[in-house]
């Protein structure tokens, strides 16, 4: 599973990455993480509010930092 965190490096992006990493570890997922900071690339995913969470090229969340349990609910069926 390839997880991308979209955002220019704001506090929210760091929070989202931390939550996503924790969720992946707890679910025992084999996930690689990548930060996408380039604005053109971020906009390319259709994101207009950062941060964004992309899993295997599919945008799952944009514009807010979901809670840890919400991220787990999103990632669990994709494992």
């Amino acid at each position: 599973m390839h997880i991308k965190i979209l955002g220019p490096g704001c506090a929210n992006c760091t929070n989202l990455e931390r939550i996503a990493r924790e969720a992946a570890t707890e679910l025992g997922l084999d996930a690689t993480f990548e930060k996408v900071t380039d604005y053109g690339a971020i906009a390319g995913y259709g994101v207009m509010r950062t941060p964004g969470l992309v899993v295997d090229e599919k945008l799952l969340v944009s514009g807010r930092v979901p809670t840890a349990s919400a991220v787990k609910e999103l990632l669990a069926p994709l494992a």
Binding site: G44, G46, K58, V61, S62
Partner: peptide, 15 residues
């Protein structure tokens, strides 16, 4: 110029 060259890929998620 890069703004006009950006292609909006993907399905926009409506939050």
């Amino acid at each position: 110029p890069f703004v006009f060259e950006t292609t909006l890929g993907g399905q926009a998620v409506d939050p």
